[in-house]
């Protein structure tokens, strides 16, 4: 409305307009940076704190670094014969293998639900979609009692198996399959005589690949994050993932404060690989919950 009055010289309008729209806003940037400070505060703290020894932890200024990082890592490594690294390995197994198999199951189911017409399709999808709403945490306790009856609790299986099914993964896979795989391509493969599984592995999977990476990441983080399931299922601390292990260590720290440095150093070491994974795969975090389906 007022543009013409303020910028009367017509040829310059485009430049002026963009210049106005893109003029840096110190206020907006400052708010963003405040958010950054808030989000990085605990991360910076854990980096600093893991360089301190037990007495410095509670006596020197919180964000003042010290020189004991290596000592702490050595001490943590020696704790009960390298138990910490076993926890890291277990976490990698649970999250890595679990997310890989889960993505494959999701991809297959999502592909079928998107590209096949068969009786009962709506019912199957509807039931699966209800599964999205069932918090996996609520399932953990009955899963424990069911697995206890076949003697599977306190094993790797008890943490791996329940997390292979991801209704949300199937839901996302269906969206990706519907958007990324043209039906003619599937039809053409069928006419050529390719088996359904061959079509899936050779044609569907490569076309869905970027979406599958997103599903993998989601499930990886979900398993890595899941505390209650391993907390309930496992009694043997050699099977613990890092979260349950560190939480137990913190619990003992209430009586043995020397363990606090180990907990803090362990916390730092445990988030480093995940942060690297995040930064490396950043472009796959396209999380469009509401309208994911419409983009082809």
């Amino acid at each position: 409305m007022a543009t013409i009055a303020t910028t009367p010289v017509l040829p310059a309008t485009t430049r002026t307009r963009r210049g106005h729209a893109e003029r840096p806003s110190a206020f907006g940037t400052a708010i963003l940076l405040l958010g950054v400070v808030y989000c990085l505060l605990p991360v910076v703290w854990v980096v600093m704190a893991s360089t301190k020894n037990g007495s410095e932890l509670f006596s020197t200024f919180t964000f003042a670094p010290s020189t004991h990082l290596l000592d702490n890592i050595v001490e943590l490594t020696q704790y009960r014969g390298g138990l910490f690294w076993l926890w890291m390995l277990n976490t990698a197994i649970y999250a890595g293998v679990g997310a890989l198999v889960s993505s494959l199951v999701s991809a297959l189911s999502g592909y079928v639900l998107a590209k096949f017409d068969f009786p009962g399709k709506g019912v199957v999808f509807g039931i699966l979609l209800m599964g999205v709403l069932v918090p996996s945490v609520i399932l953990a306790i009955p899963q424990y009692f069911l697995l206890a009856q076949i003697g599977l609790t306190n094993t790797y299986w008890s943490v791996l198996l329940p997390q292979l099914i991801s209704p949300y993964g199937i839901y996302l896979a269906r969206i990706y399959a519907a958007a990324a795989i043209p039906t003619d391509v599937v039809e053409a493969a069928r006419t050529e005589g390719a088996g359904e599984l061959t079509t899936f592995f050779r044609i569907a999977i490569p076309m869905m690949a970027p979406g599958l990476v997103t599903i993998f990441l989601f499930q990886f983080v979900a398993i890595w994050n899941n505390f209650l399931l391993p907390y309930i299922m496992l009694g043997d601390d050699h099977l613990f993932p890092i979260t349950v292990g560190l939480s137990g260590l913190l619990n003992q720290g209430a009586t043995v404060p020397a363990l606090y440095t180990l907990v803090i150093t362990g916390a730092l070491l445990s988030i480093v690989p995940l942060i690297i994974l995040f930064l490396a795969l950043q472009r796959f975090w396209r999380v469009d919950l509401a309208a994911g389906a419409v983009k082809a």
Binding site: N225, F227, L246
Partner: peptide, 17 residues
């Protein structure tokens, strides 16, 4: 990236920090 980073930290670890 910085504001998204906490999502990489499991709830147990962030509670601990």
């Amino acid at each position: 990236v910085a504001i998204f980073l906490p999502y990489a930290v499991p709830a147990v670890i962030s509670s601990l920090l």
